[in-house]
Computed example of a mutant assay.
Amino acid sequence: MSGSLDVVFLGLSITSSWGNGHATTYRALARALAAAGHRVLFLERDVPWYAENRDLAAPPWCDVQLYGGVAELRERFGDRLRAADLAVVGSYVPDGREVARLVQELARGITAFYDIDTPVTMAALARGDCAYLAAELVPGFDLYLSFTGGPMLRRIERELGARAARALYCSADPEVHRPAPHPPRWDLGYVGTYSADRQPALERLLLEPARRRGGARFAVAGPQYPADVRWPGNVDRIEHLPPTAHAAFYAAQRYTLNVTRADMVRAGWSPSVRLFEAAACGTPVLSDRWPGIDAFFAPGREILLAASTTEALAILDRLPDQERHAIGERARRRVLAEHTATHRAEALVGFVREARERNARRRARVRKEIAQGERG
């Protein structure tokens, strides 16, 4: 496949990172696609909570258009969907089922569902209460792009009838995420929106260590934490940290914490953007354990794993600075080699090529069967 692609994303948000991790992923991917010469249009539902918290209203590397509903989407952007080489519907899009049906009806190029919440989606589909996707829509997409890899990909194909499930993970931008020379301000920090199923791990691996090490400094950045969370006095709270401030936040930590939602721990192979961004900054990552984490970073060499407060404290207390720096540097090299937005954009273009070839083979097979039927 040669030449540039005309790509249309219909995602949760690219203009606001408030309370969601989707914007960071879409920004990095759209920027990398544009740098490679592809044209990107991002269609975002105009909702008040993002309108009030837009930290990138007009990205310079893609066209962003807001719409008010599915009818307006059809009227204003139907021609763009018909002309697109690739039309991608993301998870958690408002009225996502209707949006997916519209894309499958209008698009003449490759269509894809991009699941940034795969284990959550699969659980919701099993319960029959997924608001943004219906199981019967999955076979209608040429590609099912998943934030979760490993065995989950075959499960999506087997249980949902996806034509091709492929992992398209989050990434880091090495131009934005890089080491900084100033000394760390915090011993351990964390950035992430509140989630009830992540909170127990945050308690074990950051808040309880903070209670036991009153002379150390900690930080938690992110919105929507309940008022009844008991924050130790040595934990600094930052209500919202825009993506442009992430690199400085990571650089100001001796270690940064990664904790994972319960559904994603069970599924495994579900790296968060924190892993790649912090590693690209050379900040050592202390993470909870889940299947497949060693596919991204080598435990003990490129990432540090802990399941308990005792294990977390052992890392904070005993690891020499020289080894800490070495772990961070090895992780940074791994990100630059495998986990940048450029790698993800290249993978996506490859998946489109694969889908086109698969569709061409299918059309040729159908023509052959028709011809055989006519001769018979």
Rank of each mutant, 00 (worst) to 15 (best):
L241A: 11
L241G: 07
L241I: 02
P242K: 03
P243Y: 03
P243S: 05
P243W: 00
T244V: 12
T244E: 13
T244C: 07
A245K: 13
A245N: 11
A245F: 05
H246V: 12
H246E: 00
A247L: 00
A247Y: 00
A247F: 00
A248V: 01
F249P: 09
F249R: 04
Y250E: 04
Y250M: 03
Y250G: 05
A251H: 02
A251I: 01
A251K: 04
A252H: 03
Q253C: 15
R254K: 15
Y255A: 07
Y255G: 06
T256V: 15
T256E: 01
L257R: 04
L257S: 06
N258L: 11
V259N: 07
V259F: 04
T260L: 08
R261H: 08
R261W: 02
R261T: 09
R261M: 08
A262T: 02
D263S: 13
D263Y: 03
M264T: 05
M264G: 14
V265S: 04
V265C: 02
R266E: 14
R266P: 01
A267H: 13
A267W: 11
G268A: 12
G268L: 12
G268M: 11
G268E: 02
W269R: 11
S270A: 14
S270V: 03
P271K: 12
S272V: 01
V273F: 03
V273E: 06
R274E: 02
R274V: 06
R274T: 08
R274P: 00
F276T: 11
F276W: 09
F276P: 10
A278T: 03
A278M: 03
A278W: 03
A279N: 05
A279D: 10
A280P: 11
C281H: 07
C281W: 05
C281T: 08
C281S: 10
C281I: 09
G282Q: 13
G282Y: 06
G282K: 14
G282M: 13
G282T: 12
G282L: 10
T283H: 05
T283I: 05
P284R: 13
P284I: 11
P284A: 08
P284L: 08
P284K: 12
V285G: 10
V285N: 08
V285I: 07
L286Y: 08
L286Q: 07
L286F: 06
L286I: 14
S287W: 10
S287L: 05
S287A: 15
D288A: 10
D288S: 14
R289D: 15
R289V: 13
R289N: 11
W290I: 02
W290S: 08
W290H: 13
W290L: 14
W290N: 01
P291M: 07
P291S: 15
G292M: 05
I293V: 15
D294Y: 01
D294M: 00
A295F: 03
A295W: 02
